[in-house]
Simulated assay, not measured.
Amino acid sequence: MRYQLELFLTALGYFTRIPVPAWVPWSTQRLNHAARYFPLVGWVVGGVGAAAWLGFAQVLPASLAVILSMAVTIRFTGAFHEDGWADSCDGLGGGWDKAQVLAIMKDSRIGSYGTVGLVLMLLAKAFALIELAAHGNAAVALALLAAHPLSRLGATALIHWLPYAREDDSSKSKPLAHALRPGELAIAALCGLVPLILLGFAQALAALLAAGAVALWAARLFLRRLGGYTGDLLGAAQQAGELGIYLGILIAWNCT
């Protein structure tokens, strides 16, 4: 059990700003094995976002409460996945071949595609959550609690399905370039899927279908453009999956 706790804390420290206790060992091999707990990190991020939303919604209009709760989760994660989305937009939007796409994504500066993509992504997520607020404060909180783990499961599945696209060791995500073993994949799936019980059947089914569709679309796109994934592309897949889940839940709410 201690080893499993260490792996979870390794994943938590890598994907959030939470300090990891000094007694937790670090190695690239442990980070690779910690991939099973990436969706569980989504429980923590989603819980922080839901708590922030419920607190702000008591004293502020829904629109401001949503924006501030998003700001809290972005600060909590260090904009880790948002940065990956922006870099992916720049690379896939501005690059013609694999080498050019990878070089653009490696550049720390943000370009036109990244700026537009990031703004549109944040606006789309904000407006989706604001629309969900019409169904009650609990609807937003439950959507956050479900979307963060499930979207991270989609990104984790890409690690399992796809090869790593970079041929060098320069990327921070190189340690993750290994397929998960069946037991590890089962743990990731359990952590990503269990929060769906918080939703109604129609909302859970719509969220699952949306997450699956985004993951399959991302896998096809990444294979076609780069022959695999990079860390930035995993972040982009998480962001797209999160938005897709919100939209799926919203559509299910509006159709029932």
Rank of each mutant, 00 (worst) to 15 (best):
R2H: 10
Y3I: 05
L7A: 02
T10L: 13
T10I: 05
A11E: 12
L12M: 00
G13P: 14
Y14C: 05
Y14Q: 11
T16C: 12
I18V: 15
P19M: 03
V20R: 13
P21F: 04
V24E: 09
S27F: 13
T28R: 15
Q29Y: 11
N32W: 14
R36D: 02
F38N: 04
L40P: 02
L40Q: 01
G42N: 01
G47A: 04
V48D: 04
A50K: 05
G55H: 02
Q58C: 10
V59C: 05
P61T: 08
A62T: 15
S63W: 09
L64Y: 01
S69I: 01
M70C: 11
A71I: 00
V72Q: 06
V72C: 11
V72N: 05
T73S: 04
R75V: 09
T77H: 06
G78C: 10
G78F: 06
A79Y: 00
S88I: 08
D90E: 11
D90H: 07
G95C: 11
W96Q: 12
W96H: 14
D97W: 01
Q100T: 06
V101K: 12
A103P: 08
I104D: 07
K106I: 07
S108E: 13
R109E: 08
I110K: 12
I110D: 01
I110R: 13
G111T: 10
G111A: 13
A124W: 11
A128F: 08
L132F: 10
A134W: 02
H135W: 15
G136R: 09
N137G: 14
L142Q: 09
L144T: 05
L145Y: 09
R152M: 10
L153A: 12
G154A: 10
T156I: 07
L162M: 11
Y164I: 10
A165R: 00
D168I: 08
D169V: 13
K174M: 10
L176V: 11
A179R: 15
G192E: 02
L193S: 02
V194G: 01
V194K: 00
L196M: 04
G200R: 14
F201G: 01
A204D: 00
L205I: 10
A207T: 09
A210V: 04
G212E: 05
A218D: 09
A219F: 13
L221W: 15
R225G: 12
L226N: 03
Y229A: 09
Y229S: 07
L233C: 12
L234Q: 09
L234E: 07
Q238P: 03
Q238A: 14
Q238F: 14
G241N: 05
G241V: 14
L243K: 03
L243E: 02
W253V: 11
C255D: 12
